[in-house]
Amino acid sequence: MQNIPKNMFEPAAANAGDAEKISKKSLSLWKDAMLRFRSNKLAMVGLIIIVLIILMAIFAPMFSRYDYSTTNLLNADKPPSKDHWFGTDDLGRDIFVRTWVGARISIFIGVAAAVLDLLIGVIWGSISGFRGGRTDEIMMRIADILWAVPSLLMVILLMVVLPKGLFTIIIAMTITGWINMARIVRGQVLQLKNQEYVLASQTLGAKTSRLLFKHIVPNAMGSILVTMTLTVPTAIFTEAFLSYLGLGVPAPLASWGTMASDGLPALTYYPWRLFFPAGFICITMFGFNVVGDGLRDALDPKLRK
């Protein structure tokens, strides 16, 4: 090592610009989070499950020989076979097709409830948190009052007043569902509105709408997204629960909830009528919950390396 002659060394070219150079590839926080999400195996399994269920819900009924509402009493209560993969129900309808039609409705209810919660919750929560003071006080007390009324009672009352159907169920679930989202958004806004980048924008003369939608909401997006993902399975489950009370979607429409509740009396003789819809409720809830947890971990800035 000592024998290297000095004349073999050459000074590196000094370039002022190089000192500030960053050689790492540019990554936005979203891309960074996605990388971390992808390395989370359980969450990826959840995501694959959700995608598969959605694809099946869209395409399976289209390509099936059977129709979800056509009855065939000669073929009632058949166990799973080559013709009917999941068996048939008491009116001879193919459970495989009905499961995927039910998936459409269950997932639609879940997603629609989550989106409505998102809209109302984000607007309510961000106004409440940003304005603060008396506005905040009044808005949060209204939410508290709604929260204090047993939601089931409210849902049942609404179902009595409104016509029976899909949209009534969604509205009934949103009427209390948005409060959770509003509280989370408010908490985030309270925390973010005193951040120096928000103050900096304010000193530049930004309007409230700019502060909210350019600075605060994008930074609260992580928690909003996680809450939304976790709302979907809750809504699916609530719908199933309402079906047991006879408040589900009207026949011949099928949701996983109504199918499970129809299948329950026949549990001892024809267990597949309950097992398939109930199984899919479980799998879907598992998928959304795992994805929600994965998102939470991926978006948590404290876990950034």
Partner: peptide
């Protein structure tokens, strides 16, 4: 009138370029 802030880690919005 403009302002320079104390904490360089909190004064730039992490979601913006």
């Amino acid at each position: 009138m403009q302002m320079i802030f104390q904490d360089p880690y909190a004064s730039l919005n992490p979601r913006m370029t």
